[in-house]
Amino acid sequence: MTDVLENDRIRAVIDPVRGARLISLVVDGHEVLAHASVPGIDPAIADGCFPMVPWAGRIRDGRIAVGGGVYQLPQTGDHALHGLGHVSPWDQVAEGAYELAIGAPWPTEGVATMTYQLLDDGIRMELSWDDDTEAPCSVGLHPWFRRRLDSGEELVASLEPEVMVERGPDGLPTGELVEPTAGPWDDCFRLAAAPVLTWPGALELSLSSSADWWVIYDEPDDTLCVEPQTAPPDAFGHPGLQPDGPWPHGVWLELTARTP
């Protein structure tokens, strides 16, 4: 059973069973979310917009060291991928609000909260993780956007990378920050400005977030991922990618629309 939030301009459909993910987002009559067509992709990460908690992105070999112990996390291929929340059913606790208790195999026990709030011209999504500890964590949101809507021209993405997380030959971060390279990307960045997605003749979406980091995945021909994260992938193994203070335990993402 899915839940629907709607107003005059926005219609959002949430599936609590599939990780409390947004499975449809219609803005001014246009469906903007997609189902990935990447060959061999795990169906659990292939559509909509889903929460990544209590870690976002990949963890090398699925192993994380916390409090003197080393913990093995479930792996997708060679590494642990995108947390535990997107593969679990969540409990609805209010309209547009969902919770999930998470423990082993993660090193701590806590509760993730996912909320959706409609705006007059968009939607606000907020994800938090509360385990009452200072243990490492990262959270993020993973939307798949369509490159082509039912009308208008192909998507034009305004992305202004400022700093890029270097990836090694295995595709995972080396721990170094470098000058951004030219795309296509499956990479993590600090951006100089908030992303703007424009389908000329149809719709423009501005994305704003509390996150310092964005993963951009623009390799597919028919989809684009623009993912706010509180820390880069595999930051747990690289001090240079970790926050100066406490690990952030929450992230919000707002999508606001206008007709171009």
Rank of each mutant, 00 (worst) to 15 (best):
H35G: 03
T256L: 08
P243R: 09
H142E: 03
H82T: 00
C137V: 15
A194D: 15
E219I: 15
V163I: 13
P239F: 01
W90N: 03
F50V: 01
V27A: 10
A80L: 03
M114T: 05
W55C: 08
E99K: 08
V17K: 05
D170W: 10
L241E: 07
A193S: 15
T108M: 12
G77S: 07
E99H: 08
Q229W: 13
A104K: 13
Y217T: 01
L118Q: 08
S208D: 13
D15I: 06
Q117Y: 01
D234S: 09
E6H: 09
L197M: 09
L119N: 06
V38P: 02
V226T: 06
L255P: 06
E109I: 12
E179P: 01
A192K: 14
G201V: 10
I59Q: 12
H35N: 03
P246R: 10
W214T: 13
D28G: 14
I14K: 00
R21G: 01
V251D: 05
A192N: 13
C49H: 01
E153C: 08
T115M: 01
A44H: 06
A46S: 15
T115R: 15
E31A: 13
L203G: 06
G237N: 15
V111W: 09
L255R: 03
E166W: 03
H79T: 08
Q72G: 13
W90K: 01
P16N: 08
D187A: 11
S208K: 05
V66A: 06
I45V: 15
G152H: 09
S37N: 13
V251A: 11
W199V: 12
L205M: 13
R11E: 03
V17I: 12
E134N: 14
S24M: 06
R63F: 08
D61P: 08
P239W: 04
V93E: 09
V165W: 10
R167S: 12
H238F: 01
M52H: 02
I14D: 06
E126C: 09
T174P: 12
W55G: 13
I216C: 09
A202H: 10
R11P: 04
L100A: 11
D150S: 14
P54M: 09
S206W: 03
G67C: 05
D78C: 02
L33S: 02
T181L: 12
P228Y: 00
G67R: 10
